[in-house]
Simulated scan of single mutants.
Amino acid sequence: MRESAETTPSRQIADSLRSDIASGMLPPGGRLPPVRDLAERYGVSRNTAAKAVAILKAEGLVTARPGSGAYVREPYPIRRLGPDRYARNRWQVTTVDAYADAQKGSAPAQQQGGQTQEVGLVEADEAVAAALGVDVGSQVYERARVMTREGVPTHTMTSYYRQEDVEGTPIADPRPGIAGRGGGFAILAERGLDPHEITEDLSARMPTTEEALLLELPTGEPVVEVCRTARTADGRVIEYARGVHAASRFIWSYTYPIPD
């Protein structure tokens, strides 16, 4: 009978190493034994030992450093995202609360946020055109940002606007940082386009090669794509945005009444 994938030697070695990581015997940032040492320890070929390490890399538990070996991935502070991040009193805030782990009891630490950005006119694709109510191929403003915390990239956010809504405003200014004194939403509000309602659609997927490099993701880590539509009180869409978030660095948390 053919041996199942769960009981192959490489899987067994990976399970053993995973337990060592969970217990702290292999601490964050710690170097895994070389493949040749693993092969000797478990009495297997180097190819089998290498497969075990590859399994842990694919799971995002370890990362490879060329010419040095494989190391236990160091945990990254987690940021909880919910509706409160869009509160008007936070439009000027550039610091965020990050947690050591996913448990709600852990104390938050403040981290300084930042962003780089590119702004320009682009042709609206089907999703952008449908959201903004313009023709496909119409010129719209694209504001593409890479968000950082303490200088480390965490996610991207690319927003799209009708030209007439943002022409001549700080939203169309390509300089890094938040737009104007309070960010994009504050600028829209100053123009009488007060953000009132937001719809977010979340989906998980594997990153593209470009996204993995941009966000410095280890092999095997998925991303969460967020599509955001912001509207005024009368239903006019004033922004459509797409964000790509490193899955291990965020938790989305919502509290709401159960509909009838």
Score class of each variant (00 low, 15 high):
residue 140 V to C: 05
residue 116 T to K: 10
residue 68 S to H: 03
residue 101 D to Y: 04
residue 74 E to I: 09
residue 137 G to V: 02
residue 187 I to A: 09
residue 89 N to V: 07
residue 145 R to T: 04
residue 107 A to Y: 11
residue 164 E to G: 11
residue 67 G to D: 14
residue 169 T to W: 01
residue 81 L to C: 10
residue 70 A to E: 15
residue 145 R to Y: 15
residue 80 R to I: 05
residue 160 Y to G: 01
residue 89 N to I: 00
residue 108 P to W: 00
residue 164 E to H: 13
residue 111 Q to G: 07
residue 189 A to G: 01
residue 153 P to M: 07
residue 108 P to F: 02
residue 165 D to P: 06
residue 127 A to K: 03
residue 168 G to L: 02
residue 168 G to F: 01
residue 62 V to S: 12
residue 103 Q to L: 11
residue 108 P to G: 10
residue 78 I to Q: 11
residue 138 S to W: 02
residue 186 A to S: 12
residue 79 R to L: 14
residue 127 A to E: 04
residue 105 G to R: 10
residue 76 Y to N: 11
residue 169 T to D: 01
residue 61 L to C: 08
residue 132 L to W: 07
residue 53 V to Q: 00
residue 119 V to W: 04
residue 166 V to E: 04
residue 120 G to C: 09
residue 105 G to I: 09
residue 147 M to I: 14
residue 64 A to I: 01
residue 89 N to W: 14
residue 150 E to S: 14
residue 193 L to K: 03
residue 177 G to P: 06
residue 82 G to N: 02
residue 83 P to I: 01
residue 179 A to C: 10
residue 95 T to W: 15
residue 131 A to L: 04
residue 138 S to H: 15
residue 92 Q to L: 13
residue 131 A to W: 00
residue 75 P to G: 04
residue 71 Y to F: 15
residue 70 A to M: 11
residue 110 Q to I: 13
residue 162 R to L: 09
residue 99 Y to V: 12
residue 175 R to K: 14
residue 107 A to V: 14
residue 170 P to G: 06
residue 193 L to H: 09
residue 193 L to N: 06
residue 89 N to F: 06
residue 146 V to P: 09
residue 150 E to G: 13
residue 68 S to M: 13
residue 123 E to W: 05
residue 184 G to Q: 03
residue 111 Q to L: 14
residue 137 G to K: 05
residue 162 R to W: 02
residue 187 I to F: 00
residue 124 A to Q: 09
residue 109 A to E: 05
residue 77 P to Y: 01
residue 71 Y to K: 02
residue 93 V to P: 00
residue 157 M to D: 08
residue 161 Y to H: 13
residue 144 A to K: 05
residue 61 L to A: 13
